[in-house]
Amino acid sequence: MRVKRVLITRLEVYLVILAALLPLVVSSEPFHHVMTIAGLYALGTLGLAVFTGFAGQISIGHSAFLGLGAYSMAILSGTCQLPTLAGLAASGLVPGLAAWGIGRQLLKLREYFLALATIGLVQIFQVLATELEGLTGGVEGLFNLPWLSVFGFQLDRPLEQVYLVWGVVYLAFLFGRNLCSSGYGRAFQVVASSEDTARTLGLSPEALKTRAFVFSAVYAGLAGGLYACIFASVSPEAFGLDMSVMLVLMLIVGGVGSLPGALAGSVLITWLDIWLSGYQQYSLAVFGLILLLLLIFFPEGIFRGIGARWIDIVRSYAREDWRKELRR
C-alpha cells in the first residue's frame, strides 16, 4: 500500500500536452484572446470550487476580490511604476488579507444570509472603486497599464498571454488538487456537512472556513491581477455582480466540488457567452435556455455528467495501489 507523492496520471500528461499544443494549432488571435479570458475565469472558479465545492460556503461576491486584485496590480504597476511581478504578488496578497480580515465575521453567516452578505462585498467594492478617485480613477478607472513582463520579457501577444494565463491556471489547479486530496480537503468537506461534527473531530470550523475563503480570494485576486495586465485597463463596472454570477455559473455547470469541472465550466460558459453575443437581443434568452438544459441533463455538472468521473479528484488514483491490492 502506497500513496503517491505526485498525483499526476499519464492520461493527464497527455491531456495537458494536447491542450498546450492547441493554441499553436488554432493560431488565430481571437481564439487566443477568448481562451485567455476563459483562463482568467477558470482561475477565479477554481478558488470558488474549493470554497463552495469543498468547504460548502456560498459566495456571489468574488468579483470584489477579482477587482481588488486588478486594482492592486493597476495601482502598483501603473501608478507606482513598480515591476509587474510585484503587482501580481500584491494582487494575490491584498485580496487574501482582505478576506482574512473579514472572513471570521462574515462566515458566521450561513447559506442565503452568506450569499446576501457577499453581494454586499461587491457593492462595497464598487463604491470604494468609484469614490476613491485619486487612487482608482473613479468611474473611468485606470488605463494604459503596462503588460506583464517577466524578467524583462514582455508578454503582450495573445499567444503569449494564453500560455501565461493557462500556465498559472494549471499550477493553481495542481495546488488546489493537492490541497483537496490532503487532510485539508477532507476537513473542508466535514465542515461543509456539519460544523458540530467537525468540532468533535477536533476541527475548528471558523478557522477552516476562513482559510478556504482566503484561498479563494487569493485565486480570484490573481485572476484580477492578470486581467489588469491583459486588458491594460481596470474600471469598476468590469467587476460587478455579473462577473460574480458568471463565476458561480461556471462552477455549477462544471460541477460543484470538481476542480477539473471548474476548468471545463469556465471554458464552456466563456465560449457560450461570446458566441451568443452575436445574437444581440436574443442572446440572454438563448444563454438562459442552454443553461437550463445543461442543469437538467447534467445536474452534477458537465464534467461528472460526461462520465469522466475517473479523472476527477485524485483520491481515486492517489491510492490506486491499494485498489490493485484489493483486487488480487
Binding site: 490541497l179 490532503s182 476537513a187 482559510r211
Partner: peptide
C-alpha cells in the same frame, strides 16, 4: 476524517504536497 486534526502541516505545505504532507497521508 478522524485524523484530519492531527495534520499540522498547514495549507501551503498541503498545497505543495511536500514530503512531510505526503508521509503523513
Amino acid at each position: 476524517v478522524g485524523r484530519c486534526r492531527l495534520h499540522g502541516p498547514g495549507l501551503i505545505r498541503s498545497g505543495l504536497r511536500t514530503r512531510r504532507v505526503f508521509r503523513r497521508e
